[in-house]
């Protein structure tokens, strides 16, 4: 199943609990239609990973996720031989091996005979598929999410190229494996470092920024159903005011949602400057940031239209 057109993408993503802008919908549609990977960039917490999850949900596909980190290698990303199992099998089949080599005239012949059999140990039976191989050999089409690809080593990035352009992997002992069904690939990046041109060339690029007021309002209303309109409005205006300050880490969409949820738990109906300062630790994760917000709380309150409770 694929998306039929851009409007369809938007609707089905909304059904999966993800509200997106038109640009996002366009790119997702094109990636689906042309079977190209998408490279998603943007600040932390704007829903890059969520997007992949939502696409998987809306297409009814499984999501296979590969979290990248420094030191990630092929053995963890692609496949590994199950050495323990191989060892066990050799132990169990010792007698059989004796049988195979019994009657051989000399050592060379014995070795030859074993050589005829030994492929058995490097076969599908003993391979342990890791996310990338799983995604490629799955009979059902899947969504493959390669998360935080910028955290991986440059070597791994180069290794990804084969998968991204041809959807195939090469296992030295077995040969080249082609994808049965081409997966929908998302790569996310936090801009920790620049990706290579070769990688960028193979992907469609998508930058997700902090959502604007309207979009964020829709998101809050969808994810926090109990929230009152007035409170939501105040909340989002305040967040946008805070984002315009020079912070070390700006509050992201997921933090807005956390904040909204906790305000509901606190049974707040009206946002006041005092409540903002009291619950600041939900949105500011550095001390210097919360200090800065506390200093500027009056301007924020004025611009966001909060009432002072005197």
């Amino acid at each position: 199943m694929t998306h039929e057109n851009i409007v369809n993408v938007k609707e089905s993503l909304e059904k999966a609990g993800y509200i997106c802008s038109k640009t996002v919908a366009t790119v997702v549609y094109l990636a689906g239609a042309t079977q190209k990977p998408v490279l998603v960039e943007g600040p932390a917490g704007v829903g890059k990973t969520e997007l992949a999850k939502a696409v998987a949900k809306s297409l009814g596909r499984d999501l296979i996720r590969l979290q990248c980190y420094e030191g990630l290698d092929e053995a963890k990303a692609l496949y590994e031989w199950e050495y323990a199992k191989q060892l066990l099998y050799t132990q169990m089949m010792k007698d059989r091996i004796d049988e195979v080599i019994s009657g051989s005239g000399n050592l060379t012949e014995a070795v030859d005979r074993i050589a005829n059999e030994e492929d058995a140990f490097f076969s599908e039976r003993f391979i342990q598929p890791r996310p990338l191989l799983q995604a490629i050999s799955s009979p059902e089409p899947v969504v493959l999410l390669i998360d935080e690809v910028d955290k991986s080593d440059p070597e791994f990035e180069a290794f990804l190229l084969e998968i991204l352009s041809d959807f195939q992997v090469t296992i030295p002992e077995l040969g080249t494996r082609k994808a049965i069904k081409i997966p929908f690939v998302f790569l996310t990046s936090n801009n920790y470092r620049d990706m290579s041109d070769a990688l960028k060339r193979r992907c469609i690029h998508l930058y997700i920024d902090y959502p604007d007021v309207n979009l964020e309002m829709q998101i809050v209303k969808l994810k926090v159903p109990g929230i009152k309109d007035r409170l939501a409005e105040q909340l989002i205006n305040t967040i946008h005011e805070i984002r315009s300050l020079d912070l070390k880490k700006k509050p992201c969409t997921s933090e807005t949602l956390d904040w909204a949820q906790s305000l509901i738990a606190l049974q707040v109906n009206q946002l006041t400057p005092e409540i903002v300062t009291d619950t600041l630790n939900l949105i500011c994760k550095y001390r210097s940031d919360s200090d800065l917000v506390t200093e500027n709380i009056e301007t924020i309150a004025k611009n966001a239209g909060l009432e002072c409770s005197i």
Binding site: K22, T26, V27, Y29, L30, T34, L39, M195, I204, H205
Partner: peptide, 24 residues
């Protein structure tokens, strides 16, 4: 990709170009 979309709608046209030409 342009063949797949409605080129007369400008934001869409722009986002296709942007997704392909500006990759960071």
């Amino acid at each position: 990709q342009l063949e797949l979309i409605d080129v007369l709608e400008e934001p869409m046209f722009k986002s296709v170009l942007r997704a392909n030409f500006a990759k960071s």
